[in-house]
Design a protein around this nucleic acid. Structure first.
Lengths: 313, 313
DNA sequence: TTGTACGCGTTATCAA
DNA sequence: TTGATAACGCGTACAA
């Protein structure tokens, strides 16, 4: 493995001059540059990136903690992060979470060990307070609304589009609204925002018996519909936390030959387009891009990205 | 930034002993270990990963070159790579291709500069011959059948399931078969395998006028159907290179109020399940996992993963 | 404009 | 069982 010292020795100049040639900066006379470059070319030499990182004290790498599941939140967010990272000259290390808090803590330890310049948490497991103690080792960005806590954050601001959505539902005279939420509203901002917007629009809290938690997939939507039907709950509208999930609902009714209630999804997926029900585009790509800019230090603070209600009319 | 020398100095032992404590190996007496560990804990010291990588001459990082698009080939492949990497203690750097060969070459240069221990190409742009010249810098794995070329490869072996698929189509008495292919069969193995299986089963080459190239999305399927209809080509069956694409086909016929031809997709997507047509599962997760094992050196050679025809009956 | 020498932080070899 | 020191390669004050 030929190194910079070899080039210096063979070309007859010093390592610093060689370094200057490599990095195209400072003063190197043309003849010297030519000679050194000739040796570099001849020996087919390239500098070692790891040594460079060590010397510079910077890796130009951002770690992105995420679940490895095929869901628009992750795929779009990831795409946004990658695109922005490439544009900014950064590399992205995908760090799988597997729903394991200790694993995510391990990534903060890696940040501390200088493996990354910054960390983006697209998951929402580790308490922010715990993250704050690691901020001295590098930037940490979360992808949900951190409330009053002072940490860099990029997230989808769902409130306004949720209000539009529920207003649309109300205007169409639906009243028994089934809500499918990803997690308990007490624990999840998304769920809380949904409930808040519902309450604001309808003037009352959502019907508890019509609210289902933990729906993430098509199959979950299918089960939720089964639940509604077998318990004679008869919602006249179902607001799901995803088009695929809403599609699962529709399929159950179809399979049973029952008239389906009104449906609305989220995330602007193909399935929603096919079935033609309204949806909400949360612009996760933009969220990801914003998160990356926070991670590199190109921006700071809290960046809320507005989502759009799409009535599909 | 406290380093190993600080710990050595303050604890009163040498850096090598401290290193041994850190790495839990070789002989360190219990009292010495305890003392050194106390200093480590007190100063809240952790070793620097970059320095470690430099010293060891290894990064435990695999670069994965891929397109950043929401397609099961990439999402499943990526998931397989990530899962296997985590299990093997490797990190994965996502390297976006953007359809740009020079960019992909850049990643081979990074391999040469020791940024990664190995590279996985999930794309199929750079000629393998060119890759061979970089193999002296680290393992390079491709995700398609490399034919006679001796390079590590993990890929989906589509031939047998394609034959099953066409046999199924033939048995159902379809004869005017429209083929939707991702790329020109002359350039793409997938396309070539499709044509080969078709020819073997039907005893003749596919009808050129019924073959459409470059279909990648739902919208492409929609346009293909439009093409068939507006040119009065009347295929009685359409074999698409993806369930979403086949769904686009179906939607066009539906929108026009026309009877749809028979349909078959690939990749076992939700859309195909909804519409109930047959599909082929290429097991891209397994392909990704195999690719990673090749990249780490846990395996070598060419690994073909068999795909499964799913009739959905 | 060029060179010297040290710092970056760790691992590994070999001697003691 | 412990220690001294040489790698690992590169960047960069500072001197010349």
């Amino acid at each position: 493995m030929t190194n910079i010292r070899d080039i210096a020795r063979i070309s007859g100049f010093s390592v610093s001059t060689v370094s200057r040639v490599l990095n195209h900066k400072n003063y190197v006379s043309t003849p010297v540059r030519t000679k050194i470059q000739a040796v570099i070319d001849k020996l087919d030499y390239v500098p070692n990136d790891v040594a460079r990182d060590l010397s510079r004290g910077k890796t130009m790498t951002i770690g992105a903690v995420m679940l490895n599941i095929d869901h628009p939140y992750y795929t779009d967010l990831s795409a946004g992060i990658m695109t922005a990272a490439f544009a900014a000259g950064y590399n992205v290390m995908q760090l799988p979470s597997n729903y394991d808090n200790d694993q995510e803590r391990g990534y903060m330890e890696q940040l501390r060990r200088k493996a990354y310049d910054a960390l983006i948490f697209t998951t929402h497991n580790i308490p922010i307070e715990e993250m704050l103690t690691y901020r001295r080792y590098g930037r940490i960005v979360v992808c949900h609304d951190p409330g009053d806590i002072d940490i860099d954050a990029a997230y989808s601001e769902r409130g306004p589009s949720y209000e539009q959505a529920f207003t649309w539902i109300k205007r169409h005279d639906y009243r028994r609204i089934g809500l499918l939420l990803p997690r308990d509203p007490a624990l999840s901002a998304t769920g809380a925002e949904t409930v808040h917007a519902y309450t604001k629009v309808f003037g009352e809290k959502p019907n508890g018996s019509l609210t289902r938690l933990g729906t993430m997939t098509y199959a979950d939507g299918y089960s939720a519909a089964e639940y509604y039907v077998s318990n004679n709950l008869n919602p006249d509208f179902i607001f799901a936390n995803g088009d695929d999930i809403a599609t699962g609902v529709a399929q159950y009714y179809k399979d049973r030959g029952l008239p389906a209630p009104g449906l609305m999804g989220q995330d602007k997926q193909l399935s929603g387009q096919l079935l033609g029900f309204p949806t909400i585009d949360h612009h996760y790509r933009d969220v990801g891009a914003a998160a990356l800019r926070l991670a590199t230090g190109a921006a700071s603070g809290q960046v809320g990205i507005h989502s759009d209600f799409i009535s599909r009319r």
